[in-house]
Design a protein around this nucleic acid. Structure first.
Ligand SMILES: [Mn+2]
Ligand SMILES: [Mn+2]
Ligand SMILES: [Zn+2]
Ligand SMILES: [Zn+2]
Lengths: 139, 139
DNA sequence: TATTAATAAGGAATCATTATCAGTATAATA
DNA sequence: TATTATACTGATAATGATTCCTTATTAATA
């Protein structure tokens, strides 16, 4: 059996991390969140940011996105939705298309895994990077 | 303008890496591939494995999977298909359901990104881990 | 209030990956 | 074939993201 989950306290640090993450739609990395939070809590440690993001993700308060790139990203919007990542600059945006709940059922019949969920990651070039590419082509 | 892409030589190392990767369906990590290849080329360096996996992925010879977990995984099957990852042991398997080509079109209309493609990652519990969980429950 | 448990901060440690570099192999060319 | 240019290897160092560890605080509870 597993140890009982410790009860989560709503510390100042935890609260500010959640507030700052909720303010943005950019799916920031841990160190980006660290920079945001540090403006309000200059003494906070990077480890604290990591620990709390991890804990909050485990408790379903936020999403931990394991998308492409070297760093994990975080999302305060917890309802299931899809993402698109720019292949050039790495930016991650939400993609506003309906979630395919049927996919999970279809996967259940096709696999011996017990399906828990799914995530779709689109890849593309963001508008800004499209412009840059056009400029490069002219040279 | 960008420098011309250097021509790829088919070195022994590159060939053996590709052959060993093609043998398995497990989506191995770089260090797992290193272990496989070392049985045939004991002097190969880990850096060589990383370098060649990267180069072959850039040239479309293999896929570099940016799925959840701490390590990248590689796949010699380059046609578009979906994956499922065990939330407990991290194993990655193919999921045999048809690819939704319509998704890319739908994403194009919903987003200002220039869509390049998409990948679906299902999450679940693999058969082996299901058994382990049952055993744990009995205790 | 005394005790216990959760948490913070800071720093060290770990792990995956990438960069550097000197020497080697291969391909192109004279 | 000899020469030259270029891609490549293997060893090692460096980097970067994340986790771990230790001590001090803080909050909850008896
Ligand atoms: Mn999102
Ligand atoms: Mn596959
Ligand atoms: Zn971009
Ligand atoms: Zn498993």
């Amino acid at each position: 059996m597993n140890a009982p989950a410790p009860m989560l306290r709503l510390t100042t640090q935890r609260q500010v991390i959640l507030e700052e993450l909720s303010k943005v739609k950019t799916h920031p990395t841990a160190s980006e969140i660290y920079d945001m939070v540090r403006k309000r809590l200059p003494r906070i440690g990077l480890g604290t940011v990591y620990r709390n993001l991890e804990l909050m993700a485990e408790n379903g308060m936020i999403l931990k996105l394991e998308v492409g790139g070297t760093q994990k990203r975080f999302d305060a919007t917890t309802d299931n939705h899809y993402h698109i990542r720019c292949a050039r600059c790495g930016k991650v945006d939400d993609l506003e298309i309906p979630v395919f709940n049927t996919l999970t059922e279809e996967a259940s019949t096709a696999s011996s895994y017990q399906i828990l969920g799914h995530h779709i990651e689109f890849t593309g070039i963001c508008p800004e990077c499209q412009k840059i590419q056009e400029d490069e082509y002219e040279e």
